[in-house]
Amino acid sequence: MAQKTGGNARSRVSQLGSLFSNRYGRSATEESDLEVSVVDSIQDVGKAQWNDIVERSSRGSVFHRYEWLDAIEQGLGYTPKHLEITKDGNTIGGMPNFVVGIEKTPFNRLSSLYPGFGGPLLPTDTQASLEQVLAAVPRLCRGKTIVHQIRGLDMSYLRYNDALQSQGYQPYRRECRFLLDLTKGHDGILADMSRTRRRGIERGRDVDYEIVEEEISRETLRRFYRSYERVMDRVDGEVYPFSFFEQLQSMDDRLLLLTIRIDGEYAGGMLELLDDERDSIHGFFAAVPREYFDDHASELLYDHVFQWGIDHGYETYDFGSTNTDFEDGVFRFKEGFGGRAVPVLVWERGCSPLWPLVKAGRDLYWPYYT
């Protein structure tokens, strides 16, 4: 186990004591001697060691990376309960988890992963590692933490469906994502858009505008954040604190910050995540004030990032999660760009007798729950 390099300072002895006191023993399978440990901070594993697992796993993504997990831990203050799989003292896999509040209840869920998408990373000894990870989860759900949720990034996580359901996980399908194929080129993308989106881009081009790729700095993030905060307040969305955006500076090579100016005035922007593991761009944060809607600032920004992605060799643009209501304005807006709708794969496993009651309430009023 690598020494901690930052975060909440603890002595090396207490670090090891925390980790090894949570060991669950060896796998029953004969093929390997595996151990699963609870990691109370991603910094206890170390950046190079963890990112090596991400890069070796076919399901690794920008959301699994050390920097994203550290930003959630340090910037949002969510409690980590990561699972680390070791073999002969070497880290060979893991599953990130955070304790997150269940909206409009006093209870928590253990989530892999939120914000973003997670799930297990098991590049080697997959079957035995998965057995160990799933066996360890119930011990992490104590007190007010009543359910474990896995949010897979793409359809490849279906490979775990039977194993998950055999351990009591149930599919939960209330979100989708729109994926745009950048490999068909800019003209192909425009041809497949709805008339409304295409016309918005055409009309926007008649405006005196400029789109700039910004350096990732506290100043540029603060300016973006002011617009982001206004937009999220208007739509009654969850507003992440600025501390989270500050922490994201450590992964500036995986961020694309675009600013649009109209008639020389700041008119909003987009903060994109560059998922080099998946050759994808994630549209995770957008902030265009209402007063620039008629100037089609949003359509111009999306059109720009599509071309940017093509020029830099990315294969898909991911618009991020939305609900599955075709009458919802966000759903229709994203759909209009011609992307392919895919379900967000979510599995849930109750860890408390209270979970069925909370789940029944959520299912009754599901649009208000995440």
Results as ranks from 00 to 15, higher is better:
219 E>R: 15
181 D>E: 09
190 L>F: 12
154 D>Y: 05
229 E>P: 07
210 E>L: 08
190 L>T: 06
225 Y>C: 01
224 F>G: 01
168 G>C: 01
248 L>N: 11
207 V>P: 00
230 R>G: 12
208 D>N: 15
177 R>K: 04
215 E>Y: 08
252 D>I: 00
218 R>L: 06
253 D>H: 10
187 D>T: 13
154 D>A: 06
203 R>S: 09
203 R>Q: 13
232 M>W: 08
181 D>M: 05
160 Y>H: 09
144 K>P: 03
182 L>M: 05
158 L>I: 07
250 S>I: 04
187 D>Q: 13
249 Q>L: 11
161 N>C: 05
213 E>V: 10
247 Q>H: 10
244 F>L: 12
189 I>F: 03
218 R>T: 07
222 R>D: 12
211 I>R: 07
246 E>R: 10
184 K>M: 12
183 T>E: 11
181 D>W: 06
189 I>W: 03
173 R>E: 14
229 E>S: 13
197 R>S: 13
163 A>Y: 05
186 H>G: 04
172 Y>S: 14
160 Y>R: 01
170 Q>Y: 08
227 S>Y: 05
146 I>R: 06
195 R>E: 14
188 G>E: 06
204 G>A: 11
229 E>H: 11
168 G>Q: 02
239 V>A: 02
154 D>V: 04
198 R>F: 09
204 G>N: 08
146 I>Y: 07
173 R>T: 14
231 V>N: 11
184 K>F: 07
169 Y>F: 14
179 L>Q: 10
191 A>T: 14
174 R>S: 09
164 L>T: 00
245 F>K: 08
171 P>R: 06
238 E>S: 11
209 Y>L: 05
194 S>D: 10
216 I>M: 04
201 I>S: 05
173 R>V: 14
188 G>Y: 01
146 I>H: 04
218 R>K: 03
212 V>Q: 12
249 Q>M: 15
181 D>P: 08
196 T>I: 07
184 K>E: 09
162 D>F: 10
185 G>V: 08
229 E>A: 15
204 G>P: 06
220 T>Q: 04
241 P>F: 08
198 R>C: 03
222 R>V: 03
169 Y>V: 02
207 V>K: 15
194 S>G: 13
242 F>A: 06
177 R>Y: 03
199 R>K: 15
237 G>S: 15
220 T>D: 05
241 P>T: 06
238 E>F: 11
196 T>K: 15
186 H>Y: 14
194 S>K: 03
197 R>D: 05
202 E>K: 15
172 Y>I: 02
167 Q>L: 02
202 E>H: 14
241 P>K: 11
183 T>K: 12
179 L>M: 15
192 D>Y: 02
152 G>Q: 12
169 Y>M: 01
189 I>C: 07
182 L>G: 04
214 E>F: 00
231 V>C: 11
171 P>Y: 02
230 R>V: 13
193 M>W: 12
162 D>L: 07
